[in-house]
Design a binder for these strands. Structure first.
Lengths: 219, 219
DNA sequence: TTGCCGAGTGACCGGGCGGTCATTATAATG
DNA sequence: CATTATAATGACCGCCCGGTCACTCGGCAA
């Protein structure tokens, strides 16, 4: 279902180890520089192969990038499916918490892929950019939307709240939390970047508590 | 207090109209392409001046960019000071609402400046990038922090909530709202980009209501 | 009229880019 | 072994970049 972008057969004939090495170094370069500034010369230099070889594997820079992004969306999709299955029985607020923690895990495992995505958000002239962003964001909406409806159905979320406002807030907050974890200058004073897992989970819990109970004094 | 970055005297000697024209076109170019891809050739071509002239005004690409960003931070600072003064007496939630509306107004007035900032967030190798981002984000924190403390003091925000969590949520949500207004693919399904002022204010009010009252059914 | 000086000019430089392709090396086949 | 198919190579191409600099221009003071 992912793997919609296929490289040249030459690439597929390579040993898995070499393929992984190429993907790893290419992802690193795109994560460092973004699409436009990423240099195929730099990639082949790091890999110790000739530039011509890269063109045996992929038609051009764009095809290479699309292939990498395809791998990324596959990983995202898998992660979300896992967490959805794992947390199906849980309370709505626990589900949100687990999703946030899965996001942290994903960034820990694939920081360069996440960097590529972040750069893509505001870079210009990246081929199929809006389409790629939309693909990822659709995952997020497809996850939070049903979650909220289910939470409302089960009486864990107020019936009178507009679903799209709730998903917007959850999406925005979680997104920013993950961005702050990956990029310290976006952590909004929570100093997320250096924290260990336990502290991160405490912050997540605190945020969800505030969203659940509201800012206004009760009574 | 802004205007810390000074161009060459040649630039300051130009007529205000010419200066504004140069700033306008340069901002447009940097907003379109980001720092790295922005082309001085393109800027001088649009302005109809020689490249050498640009180098009479600014030492190099970096100095030009820093000057533009300085203008930007001046505008942000002024806007925040205005809204702070204007909303001083208001209820906490009205203050938040007014800040969000001021953000909308700012983007309407200076969309290219806002674009430069958004691109800066994830672009690599921009001179003084983290410093510039920190400067803008400090404005935001300096605004929301005291606001939350004041709101708590006045009993409009629960006493037991950790301030930094509250500011994080407000900052993240407002930020994402403005990003969604400027970039339709980030609007999280609220379709903010096309909306008129009244509809935007309704969305803002709805979001603040949810944050104020919480997701959990009361009772 | 002359000399001066700041403003404005654009051809030019070195360098890096994505991409090409004729050539060589390697592996598979009979 | 020879022949053929596939993979790997890197010099090279045209392009555009940021930045330079020897030069021209125009107004003003002497």
């Amino acid at each position: 279902m992912s793997e919609m972008v296929i490289p040249k057969s030459t690439f597929l004939n390579l040993s898995e180890e070499k393929r992984r090495r190429i993907v790893r170094e290419a992802v690193r370069e795109f994560a460092d520089k973004g699409f436009q500034k990423a240099s195929l010369n730099a990639i082949v230099a790091r890999l110790g192969i000739a530039k011509g070889s890269l063109y045996q594997y992929f038609d051009n820079k764009e095809a290479l990038f699309l292939y990498l992004f395809d791998q990324f969306t596959g990983l995202v999709k898998g992660t979300l499916a896992e967490v959805a299955a794992f947390s199906r029985q849980a309370n709505f607020y626990a589900q949100i918490r687990l999703a946030a923690e899965a996001g942290i895990t994903f960034i820990d495992r694939h920081p360069d892929f996440y960097d590529i995505y972040l750069k893509l958000l505001f870079e210009q002239d990246v081929p199929h950019r809006e389409e790629l962003i939309a693909k990822v964001r659709l995952f997020s909406r497809d996850y939070f939307g049903p979650l909220c409806e289910e939470g409302r159905r089960r009486g864990q979320v107020r019936q009178d709240l507009p679903i799209e406002i709730v998903t917007f807030i959850l999406d925005a907050t979680l997104d920013r939390f993950l961005q702050g974890y990956a990029k310290s200058y976006l952590d909004g004073g929570l100093a997320l970047a250096g924290k260990d897992r336990r502290e991160l989970e405490e912050k997540i819990a605190a945020i969800i508590d505030v969203l659940r109970d509201g800012l206004l004094p009760r009574g």
